[in-house]
Amino acid sequence: MTLTALPYLLALALMIIGLYVVVAKKNIIKIILGVAILDYAVNLFLLLLGYRDGGTAPIASPQQAASSDTLATFAAGSVDPVPQALVLTSIVIGLGCLALMVSLAIRLHEKFGTFDMTRIRELKG
């Protein structure tokens, strides 16, 4: 019973590690890496939710698409396509947001000369 929930638990552990890095670290680049890890963990969790034991990828071959009977047997053995479709966009959004965060960090480094949050706070004004 616990074994069937073990992948979820490990994905949750990855999520917690990402949160820890975001909350506890002082370096801006470290925080960006934490957000990236958090992003991976959430994507992974959504993907795990849609897996079916022994399932195939949700892409039918043209031979399978030829008749409705073969399509029905294919659909009975395929993994869930909906989480995959949602995660696909989320991966690219993660990269876009990472680039946005990196450009903010570059501006901060240009202004204050450091990536350290505490020193940036001291240097304020």
Binding site: A5, L6, Y8, L9, L12, I16, L49, V79
Partner: peptide, 17 residues
């Protein structure tokens, strides 16, 4: 969160099935 995860449908048997 781990307690919540155990109440989900088990891994390998999605909502689809």
């Amino acid at each position: 969160g781990g307690w919540a995860m155990t109440t989900l449908h088990p891994f390998g048997q999605p909502l689809l099935a």
